[in-house]
Simulated assay, not measured.
Amino acid sequence: MKSISHLLNLFLLIAFGFSSCEKADDEIIPGKKGVVADHTIASEIILRSIPDEYINEARNKLHIAYQHTSHGTHVSYGMFGLPDYKSGDETRFAITNNNPQFDKLDFRDNAMASYAEAGVDASDLSRNETAFIQASRNYLDDPDNSEINVVMWSWCNIAGHDVAANYIPGMQTLVNEYGESGSKIGFGEGQRGNSVTFIFMTGHANKGDNVGDGKPKNQADLIINYCNEYNFYCLDYYGIDTHDMDGNYWEDAGDDGNSSAGGDFYADWQSKHSIGDGYFESRSSPGGSVTYGAHNSQHITANRKAYAMWYILASIAGWE
């Protein structure tokens, strides 16, 4: 009887161990701090209100890996153009692209696609809904990328994707592994010293087709609600695409600030202002050629997404 009792206890311990491991896989480790950078944040007034010490801290301490295809250029082209906007911006918002330099933001554009598993397309979040998870791991586990402490992935078209089952759990898995106190953070074998902040992103708007199951607004609501509940950072593409400069919401808007009801509100606003006084020209690289963000006919979309990104970076660096 004693041997049977020992066997039963051993079985229960093993069963409990498996149960505990399974629970750990599903565990939600919240962020320490988070913010949804939406249309209320994506403005020059808000950007200029951030104290220099936090912009400087972000510029010198953060190392960003960003992966995207066409729509993702709204962030990078905006950030590359911002240093040429106003006097002092060339220093305050100095940035590099895959070429780290002293006193400039270390930004590594299209950094992670090549780290995908063989035969898997991880160009953005839309090509293969879960490819970003292993591509991020492979990238962050490479000693050449040990400095990276911020990671962001962009959607192409978010419509029709299973955000609740793939994107959100995938991001949470990466947070659990590489976030502060994550299982892969430390100095043991297979670990890295620098923890990583992961920035969530909503998808761009689709003109006249934003509302309904699996469509941009509904997907954005899922992501934003999760980030608000668990304190994660989020760059809200959808909110910026669908709100004009006065804060009016145009539910039918597309990714170019264009609405059947509200008109071409970003192009109209740009036409009433001038370069250096109201907006700046987006660029393909730091100091590179002037260009609009992909699928845009104006600079305002990329301007606003650059403002939102810098707000997030300043917050990561300790602001508010």
Rank of each mutant, 00 (worst) to 15 (best):
V151P: 01
L7N: 10
A267L: 10
D25H: 10
K61S: 13
Y139N: 08
T40F: 03
S260H: 13
F11I: 15
L13Y: 12
S49C: 12
S285Q: 11
K272A: 15
D241W: 01
N60E: 08
A308S: 07
Y307I: 07
L105K: 02
M112N: 08
I28V: 10
G193H: 07
L47N: 06
L47G: 06
D52V: 01
I55C: 04
A15T: 12
D264P: 08
V151G: 03
S260Y: 13
A205M: 10
K32P: 07
N258G: 15
G186T: 10
G276V: 13
A164Q: 11
C156W: 07
S136L: 03
A261K: 13
G34R: 00
I50K: 02
W269M: 09
A65Y: 03
R304F: 05
L235C: 08
F93K: 09
D26C: 10
S76I: 08
P216F: 06
E189C: 13
S259E: 02
T242E: 06
N60M: 02
G186Q: 09
G188E: 04
D109Y: 07
G293N: 04
R127Q: 14
L13G: 10
G293Y: 00
G170L: 05
N303W: 08
C234M: 02
G247Y: 11
Y178P: 00
D38S: 07
I28T: 05
N99D: 14
E53I: 06
E53N: 09
K104I: 11
